[in-house]
Design a binder for these strands. Sequence first.
DNA 1: TTGCTTACTTACTACTAAGTAAGTACGTTT
DNA 2: AAACGTACTTACTTAGTAGTAAGTAAGCAA
Lengths: 200, 200
Amino acid sequence: MSTSASATAFDTRTRILNLAEELLLARGFNAFSYQHIAKELQVKPAAIHYHYPSKEELGTAIIRRQLMRLRKWRGLPRVTELTPPQQLEALLDVYRQRAAAAHGPQVCFFGALAADFLTLPAPMQQELRTFSEELTQWLAGVLAAGRADGSLQFSGHPFSKAAQVLTTLAGSLQVARVHGQQQFQYILKQLHTELLPAAA
Amino acid sequence: MSTSASATAFDTRTRILNLAEELLLARGFNAFSYQHIAKELQVKPAAIHYHYPSKEELGTAIIRRQLMRLRKWRGLPRVTELTPPQQLEALLDVYRQRAAAAHGPQVCFFGALAADFLTLPAPMQQELRTFSEELTQWLAGVLAAGRADGSLQFSGHPFSKAAQVLTTLAGSLQVARVHGQQQFQYILKQLHTELLPAAA
DNA sequence: TTGCTTACTTACTACTAAGTAAGTACGTTT
DNA sequence: AAACGTACTTACTTAGTAGTAAGTAAGCAA
């Protein structure tokens, strides 16, 4: 169209974002540099600055993309049409995938960024808050619906329970990195059996 | 005695360790430097190197001290003589204190170091594993005893449940940093009501 | 063909990081 | 008084950090 969007241009920009995301999840925001990205992509560090002038913009772009993914995902027919327990299962699957990631277990966005939170630029802090809030609200809705129709069980407010479940999931990926996947399995199984009625 | 252990020497060493610990919990291992410590303590960076030649040794010392504290704490009469629910409560209090820390909510050791885990020197990784394992084992014992005498309720293996609870606690402090203390309160309340029988 | 845009590279600045070697002031020991 | 150990400072090296300014090759547009 008007923007001819040459394939290579788009590619490099996206490849930078993909790699930065990977490095963020693997090492944290303060422990990866433009040099790491540049070396891996076989370009010069200045090329990264061309696409993302500052590290703050790069970091914000990573979170923003993840927020867009969340919004798209939760609106997908193959997600909205599931029953509450299936939606919960779909969420757990996302974390299972991360735990089994190719280059060693990754943490989730929240876990990776929350640890460095106080050192993050303000725009990144704000984006992260938005992301976390929207995810919690979505899960709270799923839990409320599930308890209403008897397919899920828990005590307390759905929002509190959602916050607790997401917190546990975020933590469980960090545990997986320190203690291996078995601990992660234990924790997920524990979550699973507590939320689903024994009868079902 | 043989080592005259001049007061100032001991003081500076300890003050370095205290401040490094504080910075680690606030900013993560990769986001504090010898300069930060030196400036705050009004000495030169080389003075820090004198006491802790490398950052790896400083980091290891922080974890090791925390491990010693744990071993001492769990053996204290005022802890061992408590009932299982009281021991659980004592553990939760440690986290509540961190959440309400003076200079903004701190995360726990595990949360702070797990995020940076892949960038940590091997000795620090090993010390952290030991610390986490001992803490989980201790809590598993408390949970098992509590379920046996009917004062605590949960499903699954005590070790799995202990891992889940500690994971949730670690995560909850990260949440507190991002979303404020109220979310933290929700999560702790949720944990509390689930573990303690409604009747009690 | 001239000019403009895109996507870089080269070469740099300014700064910070961990770590080291040599020197010094001071108190204790001999 | 001489020697020594402790606890530093001064001055440095090496290696990285984010970020910038200027140049360039390739492609498209008038």
